[in-house]
């Protein structure tokens, strides 16, 4: 019981640090820790496959990409644009109102049951693989096309426009 609340506290703390850190590089590092706490949440829920995928895809690939871009663009605290205090206050109030609305909606529902893991193999690779390659085979294949098109699009966007150099003889 206390494990969940401790990890939840860490998640909230580090996600607050992500948005309030002045230096964008620190933001990325805090985001890595936040995603690590999410991985622990998945382990607590016994979703082993998702824990591994979250660890590899988010912490390994996506955040390294963020760090690459930050370092490549040479961004640091000095170049960091800041909004005026009124805009920040308005943003915080807006987000707070959203949170209050969500919490109020949760409070209106009946008292919830505890989350109980009924089947220990629910999140195992074997079980999820069977579901993925039977019911979700078409979405799985479509997502491969999505990733291919994303790759082509990213290369197309990031390369410089203009005349292609006549390097080939």
């Amino acid at each position: 019981m206390s494990v969940f609340y401790f990890i939840a506290f860490l998640s909230i703390l580090f996600s607050l640090l992500v948005i309030f850190a002045k230096n964008p590089v620190h933001s990325v590092l805090y985001l890595i820790i936040t995603f690590f706490t999410f991985t622990i949440h998945y382990i607590i829920l016994n979703a082993q496959f998702l824990a591994v995928v979250n660890f590899i895809v988010y912490m390994g690939a996506i955040l390294v990409l963020f760090l690459f871009v930050l370092m490549m663009l040479n961004l640091n605290e000095d170049t960091e644009p800041t909004k005026s205090i009124y805009v920040k206050l308005a943003g915080i109030i807006g987000g707070g109102v959203l949170l209050v609305t969500l919490v109020g909606a949760i409070k209106l529902t009946a008292k919830s049951n505890p989350v109980v893991l009924q089947d220990v193999n629910l999140g195992s690779v074997q079980n999820l693989g069977k579901v993925l390659f039977n019911e979700f085979l078409l979405p799985f294949e479509v997502s491969s096309i999505l990733l291919l098109s994303a790759m082509v699009g990213a290369v197309l966007l990031a390369t410089k426009e203009g005349k292609p150099k006549a390097t080939t003889v």
């Binding site: 019981m1 969940f4 915080i92 807006g94 987000g95 707070g96 959203l98 949170l99 919490v103 505890p114």
Partner: peptide, 22 residues
């Protein structure tokens, strides 16, 4: 995990979502 109510998980997700919005 057996003693954590569902509402607490929803609350955690709502808080983190709101932090993202902010």
């Amino acid at each position: 995990v057996k003693v954590v109510p569902l509402n607490h998980y929803i609350l955690l997700s709502a808080i983190i979502f709101s932090i993202g919005v902010i």
